[in-house]
Computed example of a mutant assay.
Amino acid sequence: MGRPTTTVLTRPLIAEAALKLLDASGAEGFTMSRLAKALGVRPSALYKHFRGKEEVIAGVRELVSDRIDVSAFATQPWQIALHAWAQSYRVAFAKHPPTIALLATMPITGAHRTLAMYDIVVAAMVRAGWPEHEVLPVIVAVESFVLGSALDAVAPPDMLDPSGTESAVPAFASAYWARDATLGTASPADAAFALGLRALMIGLQDLFDELTGSGGSESAGS
C-alpha cells in the first residue's frame, strides 16, 4: 500500500504546527486557515480536534508550559524552587518570543496542563508558609520580570550601544563600556537577568519575613 495522501491529524500535531506558525509569522499572522495550509489540510479538518482558535492557543500554551521545570518545588525550599522555576520559565519563552504577548494577554482557559503547573507552584508556596492571598501576586510579579527578560534574551546584544554619541551622553556611554568590561562570557541579557532575579528574590524573602514574622531562611542563590 502507498503512503496516505492526507495528514493524519492529532491535537498534539496541530498544537506543534501552531507553535511553529506563531514562531514564523507572529500573533498577527496566525489564523486557522494558515494553520490548515501549513498542515496541508482544509480548515474544517482542524475543527474536528479544536473548537476554534482560542482552543488551539490553549494547546500552544500547554506546549510551552510543559517545558517549564517545576520539579524543585517537590524537594527544595520555596526560595530555591522559585529561582529555578524563573530560570526555566525564561528559557521556555525565549525559544518562542512571538508567543509572549499573545499568551500574556489571553485567558488561561482550556490550558489544563498549564493550570496543573501553576497548581504545583501555588501548593508549594502555601506549604512553605506564604499567605494564600499573596501567592498569585508573587507569581505574577515573577512572571512579569521573566517574560520581559525572555524578550531581552532575543534582542540584539548591542541595542544600547552609544557609539558615536559618547560626547552627548557621557554618563550612559561610560556605564555601557564599564558593563561590557565586566561581562566575561555572559551576554548582556543573561547578566541583567541574573542581577534582576537576585534582587527580586531578595525582595521576596524580605516580604516573606515581614508577612510571616520569620527571620529569613535558605538563600535563593544567585
Rank of each mutant, 00 (worst) to 15 (best):
S25N: 08
S25I: 07
A27F: 11
A27Q: 09
A27P: 11
E28T: 06
G29N: 04
M32Y: 12
L35A: 08
L35G: 13
A36C: 12
L39N: 01
L39M: 04
R42P: 04
P43D: 08
S44M: 12
S44L: 14
Y47D: 12
Y47P: 05
K48R: 10
K48M: 07
K48Y: 15
F50M: 07
R51I: 13
G52I: 04
K53N: 09
E55R: 08
V56I: 12
I57A: 11
A58Q: 05
R61V: 00
E62A: 02
V64E: 02
V64I: 14
D66G: 08
R67C: 06
R67G: 07
R67Q: 14
I68K: 00
V70D: 04
A72P: 00
F73P: 04
Q76F: 05
W78F: 07
A81S: 10
L82P: 01
A84E: 03
A86Q: 03
S88Y: 08
R90M: 14
V91C: 02
F93Q: 06
A94M: 07
H96N: 09
P97K: 10
I100P: 02
L102M: 15
L103H: 04
A104Q: 12
T105D: 15
T105F: 05
T105H: 07
M106I: 06
I108S: 06
T109K: 15
G110W: 04
G110D: 07
G110R: 07
R113L: 15
T114F: 04
T114R: 05
T114V: 09
A116C: 08
D119T: 01
I120S: 01
I120D: 03
V122F: 15
A123P: 05
A124H: 02
V126Y: 00
V126P: 00
A128F: 14
G129P: 11
G129Q: 13
P131Q: 13
E132W: 10
E132F: 02
H133A: 15
H133C: 15
H133S: 14
H133D: 15
E134D: 13
L136E: 02
